[in-house]
Every structure is written in C-alpha cells, then in structure tokens.
Amino acid sequence: MIVAFYIASAIAVFSTIMVITRYNAVHALIYLVVSLLSIAVLFYLLGAPFAAALEVIIYAGAIMVLFIFVVMMLHLGEKSVKQEQQWLKLSMWTGPGLLAFVLLIEMIYLISLQSLEDGGGMVVDAKQVGIALYGPYMIAVELAAILLLAGIVGAYYLGKEKTTVLHRFLKQQENG
C-alpha cells in the first residue's frame, strides 16, 4: 500500500516536471493529464474515492478538454495538418502512455485488494461528503453556484466577437 503511494507520487512529480519543461503545448497537456490521473490515484489511496472520481471526471476530463479545444482553436491554418502529424508521433506519447499504464496497473491492484473499504473508519465516502455538503455547507454550495454562473457570463462576454465602435468625430477625422 505504501509502495503504491510512493510510485504514484513519483509519477506525479515527474509528469509535473515534464509539464513545465515542454515547449509544445499539446505535449505538456498530455503530461498534465497523466499528473492529474496520478493525483487521483493518490486521492483513492488517501481514502477519498469520491474526490478521486471527481478529479478524473472534471479535471482530467472536462478542464483538459477545454484546454485542448483552445489549443486547436489557436492553431487554425494550413500548417495545422503537419503539426498534428508532428504532435501524434509515436515517440511523444510513449512516455505518457507508459506512465498511465503504470497507474492503471496500480489502480487495478488497489481495487482488487479491497482493503480500503474493509479497513474501517479511514475511508470518507460520497455519502458523508454529500451530507456535509448539503447540511452545514449549504450557503457555500449556493455561493459556488453563483461563482459558476459568473464564470459562464464572463466567458461568454470575453469570448464574444467585439465590434469596434468609433466615436462619430473620429470617424469624420478618418474619412476627411
């Protein structure tokens, strides 16, 4: 069990170092996904299976997809096909693939072990989290909902195409 913790943390540190030293954004993103997956394994080991699931679904799933969409939006053009070929070379995804494979083996081992659930009071499962979330933390949940609404409105406003509105004097000056 303790060995699994050290393997997962070594993978997390290594892939994070790879994230901040890559020059190519897509390579860094793939290593970032591996880093998030290893942190999800750490959450599972620390007795927080619900947080581990959220880490995989929201961080490694939704947020990374947003990042990849933006990278793809920024590189529109004729050279993008060549770039895609360059990015998807075998040599570049063997590293993250190997790390993710190690994590997968570790996860299968941990799930087959079943001692996290049998161990007793250490595990804080989704039921306790839900009771705490909708009991004493109700107002904080509502504030988080307002924050998400503000995020949606802000992203919509910033992402909108802006039409440049000139003052009519400036327009006359430009014409004249």
């Binding site: 959220l54 929201i58 990042f67 804080v124 989290v129 705490a132 979330l133 924050l147 992203a155 919509y156």
Partner: peptide, 25 residues
C-alpha cells in the same frame, strides 16, 4: 477522517473550472 476536507476540495474544483473558462476566453 472528516468530510470537510473533501467539501473544500469540491469548492476548489468549482472555482478552478470557472477560472479556466474565463482564463481561456
């Protein structure tokens, strides 16, 4: 062995997703 830490983690998660949406825009 308390749930409060995980609750705070969920708040950090929602804050991070809002921040990423605005930041990417």
């Amino acid at each position: 062995a308390q749930a409060d830490g995980q609750v705070m983690y969920i708040f950090i998660l929602s804050m991070a997703s809002a921040e990423v949406a605005v930041g990417l825009a």
